[in-house]
Design a binder for these strands. Sequence first.
DNA 1: CTTCCCTCTTAACCTACATTAAGTTTTCTT
DNA 2: AAGAAAACTTAATGTAGGTTAAGAGGGAAG
Lengths: 195, 195
Amino acid sequence: MPMDNSLLLNSIAKYVTLDEQEEQMLLSILHYKKARRKQFVLEEGDISAKIIFVTGGCLRSYAVDKNGTEHELQFAPAGWWITDMRSYITAEPARLNIDAIDDSEYIFINKNDFEELNIKVPKFERFNRIIGQNAIATYQHRQIDNAIFAAMERYANFCQLYPSLIKTLPQKQVASYIGVTPEFLSKMLNTQIVK
Amino acid sequence: MPMDNSLLLNSIAKYVTLDEQEEQMLLSILHYKKARRKQFVLEEGDISAKIIFVTGGCLRSYAVDKNGTEHELQFAPAGWWITDMRSYITAEPARLNIDAIDDSEYIFINKNDFEELNIKVPKFERFNRIIGQNAIATYQHRQIDNAIFAAMERYANFCQLYPSLIKTLPQKQVASYIGVTPEFLSKMLNTQIVK
DNA sequence: CTTCCCTCTTAACCTACATTAAGTTTTCTT
DNA sequence: AAGAAAACTTAATGTAGGTTAAGAGGGAAG
């Protein structure tokens, strides 16, 4: 059954040009899956032996603290990659949960296939090296932003950076991403009305 | 003049095996530099058109907030890579400063050379893809740790993760890395004595 | 239409950590 | 070895954001 791979292929094509055969090798290792709203894609304690590319809906990754409070690490709408990288690399149990915020569709690639394809198709490895660097840049700046900015500024940054997410996400998840409680975000937003 | 490249070559050899010619291509693009304690290697506002590998001493990267307070992003003792990745990728002015904590020596590779070598030597690109993934894993967990743990636990984590750095770094830099003021870290450490 | 659950809000009170300011010790520099 | 500059400590006071609790809308399932 032919699946829609165009989002993935276009995203790769931004950085490298795969020939017919290389593209075939990639397509041959893709798996397709759907997750309904709130369904887990990866559960804390599992081993994350795959890498995930979202093609529809929205996934998220988060960790749960000792009080049971969730802390969002990442939102992954269509076109984004998501995984627990530590667990992927070391095959240790994942600390992150990944679940579906909306009914979602995604492609996943098993670790063995992914590693093998990187070796067989250098252009694919280039693509991964480059998007890896992009992710590092993002994490570096998120770390600095958290250290430097107060909650209100982090909220403003989030709105600017992810305008489409702001419209669809429940406020409590935005709160968790920027590192405050939902109560505090609510208060912050409703106290600022008149300056 | 022959320089000591063994640290770099060993670090690459952990992941890939370069042949004679590949190694030569790598060596031909290396530049060697020293920085005295407190000297800048990259200054906020500059464009970070290179990638740095520390061979001796210790560098650090940090950002400065509007009050002039420094916030440590990374310590890079011998064997570590360091750069402002956003600035490297986009050629925008860096937000990070990189300077020397101790008298240090480092290798740097200019962006053009680095990108070209990645294309010419797929094994080098593999190495970079892999260490990029490692860096992502580290940043993911640092983000989560900051969200989940209180200052004392973050300090304990730091001690466990970087036992050698704890001995050499001034306390105020550790404080900055874990995200508290030096005053608070001092109080924390000196109040815990008798439980 | 209603019940249930989930999200958001409001408000009182609480705490981890920041700020300011001195004083002390360690370390560079000369 | 002296003097200056950093680094560390202590303590009083301040505040951003957390916690707890209760109520109000809103949408999905029956």
